[in-house]
Each structure stands twice: as structure tokens, then as C-alpha cells.
Design a protein around this nucleic acid. Structure first.
Ligand SMILES: [Mn+2]
Ligand SMILES: [Mn+2]
Ligand SMILES: [Mn+2]
Ligand SMILES: [Mn+2]
Lengths: 216, 216
DNA sequence: TTATAAATTTAGATAAGTCTAAATTTTTTA
DNA sequence: TAAAAAATTTAGACTTATCTAAATTTATAA
């Protein structure tokens, strides 16, 4: 139906749309590690297929049908990540690249059965919601740890930065999905934070606090 | 490392090599559903990469390194087929096309963990041997049912024809992997055969008898 | 509000994989 | 063993997805 390149563009447009009304050529070029001119070519093709709304120089948005395709790819990506962690015992920092390939396996029947096999998980290993077979999912309202104050508590539910380096750092600190934290102190000098987690004190930088997401 | 097209050519050369010392351009064109001229182009490329031994007009054989690649793709194909049948409850006639996509997922770590997760299966749902992580596998010596005579017995262990139609027919007749059969009679007129299987009499055509494989 | 900078698109090339039609080589057959 | 047939390769073209360099449009700033 759609080529691998088309699927990757649609997924990228979807992810970039979260933060803005429309997505620019340069944003896509940066995310997809390609050149702006290549992006323009592909945008024309996706517009021809009515998967995006494209006005030259004005950026793009997904059409309803383009969004459906994008959400389906994200569903497959997150279900395969869940599979890799829960069934094959990979760590959460090891699965993204494999899922980048697996998300393009086309069979809907396969992914629906995989979903069932795993008990219809609602969140992937990074805390991101998994769309169901109709494309529906919970958008839980998460805040960065940095947004709460001393004596407030929260439960770790996601990450903003998905890089291997950040995930490995969190793993080492045991700052993983589901853990409860309490803010003990904010250091004035560099705004780093001291947390209590399972009776241990952990100090995290502002950078970390900005990228670790909690629900209250 | 190798492109999807290259992998499919290597796999096809491997499969065709079972029946002959070398594989011809036209055989590959027929199996890959492409034109002889396209095959020639690809053979040059594979020869440049030293994955095949190619002499123009004389057909090809795999080099040791080409065979290693081919066996690894077959390992992945068969392990994914096993997964689809044993874990996701697909029927044996439903899995081949999905596995054709999944066999190109590149991670070796992934496939080795999948292998472990399933308990290191030795045969895929169609009775074909699954190479282990070193590329080694049993070649069990199977005969078509047509090759044995009245009063002889055997255990169904594989199929020669892997088509959906044949697999569905066998499923309906319950002529599946592991079943014991006894030849009761061979009809002279059309050489069709009457078998006993689990206390039932089943008549199969010569065509079926030629494509159903047993061990004695 | 006009010049400059930044973003984007267009023009023209390239590589992979495929195709058709024509040329060449090998095999078969009379 | 020389035509004829079959198999294979070559030549030239097309599509997809990319690229660089140049042109154009939009945004910014003096
Ligand atoms: Mn991911
Ligand atoms: Mn994820
Ligand atoms: Mn198969
Ligand atoms: Mn099989």
C-alpha cells in the first residue's frame, strides 16, 4: 500500500504535529536525517495520495487518512517494543531500533493477534500509550519532574527523551516506570533536585528532571 | 549489509540448489516472478560482492559466504513461522507470506532470543528443519508417500508442495505433521492410494501422494 | 520598507531495481 | 554439423528515493 519511506514520513509528521499546528520541511529533514529538497519531493507524493495537506512554503498537516496510517505504524512499533521487553527480555534501551524495522510488517491480523497474545497492553516500555486496533489510546497528562515542587510526589510514567543514553542512565538509577518519587529539595545554584525513591535519596540534574515524566 | 532484493535472490538460489548443481537465470526469474534480464543484473551485483560464483551463460552457485547469508534468512523465516503458529495460533497455510516479510528483520540477537523463547524448535510448521544459530540443521531423509507400497507404514513429516491450497487440503483431511499412516491399497487405474490413518480410511490421488513426505 | 537572511522549492544527477526489445551465446534437432 | 530454438545477456528506458547547487519565496531586521 505505502512504501517504507512513505510510512516513515507519515510517522515523523505525526510525532512533530504533537508540538505544533503544522510541520515544516526542515523539521522533517532534521528528524529523518535527510535533505530539505528530498522532503519536498516526498511531500508532493504524499499530497498526491491525499495523506497530507500540503501548501508549498506553508508546512504540512496529516489528513484523516494519513493520521490513520501513522497511528497504525505507531501501534505496531509500540506493540513490538512491548513484545521485545516482556517476552524476549530486552532492556528498554535496546528495543527502539528493532521496532523501527518491525513496525513495517504489514499484516493487521498479525498485529492484532500479537496484541491479544500479550493481553492488550496499554503502554509500551517507555510509558507511551499503545493505540488499540481502532487507533484509540489514552493520552495521560504527564508532567516533567521539574514542574513540581518540594514535598510533592509523583509516579514515573514516561520519558520525554527516548535516547539510549538517557534510558540507560535512568535504569542505573532505578528511576523506571512505576516508581514513586518525592521531591525533597531543589538546589538553588543549578536547580538540580534531590528525590526520595524507595527510601533512597537520589540527586538529578535539571536536564534529567525536564525529561522524566510523572503523573501526580 | 545486503538489500532486501539481494536477500531474496540468495534465498532463491539456495532453494533451487537443492535439486541441481547450479541454478539458471530462467529458474530464478520464474521463482522470483521477474524477468531474466533483471536476474542477470542482480547476478552481476551478487558476484561483485562474492556471494555467488557466476560465469555468464553457465548459471550460478552460492559461495560459502552467500550460503551463510541464505541459511540465516531461512532460519529467520522458519522461526517466525513457528512463532506465528505456536504462539499466535495461525494455521500452517497462513504463515508463509508474513514470514516472507519477517525474515528480513536484521537483528541476530532478536532471532536468537526468539529461538530460546520458543525452546529451540527443530522443525517449522511444514516440517522443514530450522537451522540453529550456527547454521546447522538436520536433513532428515523423507520419501513421498507415493514411494512406498501396500502394507508399509510411515509418519507424516513434511510436504513437497507448500501452497496454501495443498496445505488446506491436508488440514481438512487431517493429514498433518506427526500422523501415522498405513498404505492399504493402490488403485491400478489412476495409481491413487488408500491409506489408514487413526482408524479411518482416506483415499488420496497420486498428485497428493507425490507431495506428502513421510519418514519410515 | 527595503535589504539580508533563512526556509523552501526547482533543476538536474545518481543508484537500485526493474522492464522491453534487440543482440548474442548455447543447445537442440534435423 | 548447420539451421532453428531456447536461454541468456546487453542496451536503453523507467520509477523511487536520494543528493547538490541554484532559484525562489518568506521572514527578519536595520
Ligand atoms: Mn521506539
Ligand atoms: Mn517506545
Ligand atoms: Mn514459508
Ligand atoms: Mn515453512
Amino acid at each position: 500500500m505505502n512504501t517504507l519511506a512513505e510510512e516513515n514520513y507519515l510517522k515523523s509528521i505525526y510525532h512533530l504535529s504533537v508540538n505544533a499546528a503544522s510541520v515544516t520541511t526542515n523539521q522533517l529533514a532534521a528528524l529523518l536525517n535527510t535533505k530539505a529538497s528530498s522532503v519536498t519531493d516526498m511531500l508532493k507524493k504524499l499530497a498526491d495520495k491525499e495523506l497530507i495537506n500540503y501548501t508549498p512554503y506553508q508546512g504540512v498537516t496529516l489528513t484523516a487518512s494519513g493520521e490513520k496510517v501513522a497511528v497504525n505504524i505507531i501501534r505496531k512499533h509500540r506493540l513490538w517494543e512491548y513484545f521485545l521487553v516482556e517476552k524476549l527480555n530486552f532492556k528498554w534501551d535496546q528495543v527502539h531500533e528493532m521496532a523501527e524495522e518491525m513496525e513495517h510488517i504489514s499484516s493487521t491480523e498479525l498485529i492484532d493477534r500479537l496484541d491479544k497474545f500479550m493481553g492488550y497492553p496499554k503502554y509500551d516500555p517507555h510509558g507511551d500509550p499503545i493505540p488499540d486496533c481502532n487507533g484509540l489510546f489514552n493520552i495521560h497528562n504527564l508532567k516533567p519532574v521539574a514542574a513540581i515542587g518540594v514535598n510533592e510526589t509523583g509516579v514515573i510514567c514516561g520519558v520525554r527523551d527516548h535516547s539510549k543514553e538517557f534510558l540507560q542512565y535512568l535504569e542505573k538509577q532505578e528511576l523506571t516506570i512505576g516508581k514513586n518519587i518525592l521531591i525533597l529539595e531543589v538546589i538553588e545554584f543549578d536547580r538540580s533536585m534531590i528525590l526520595e525513591m524507595e527510601n533512597k535519596k537520589i540527586q538529578i540534574s535539571r536536564e534529567v528532571a525536564n525529561n522524566l515524566l510523572i503523573s501526580l
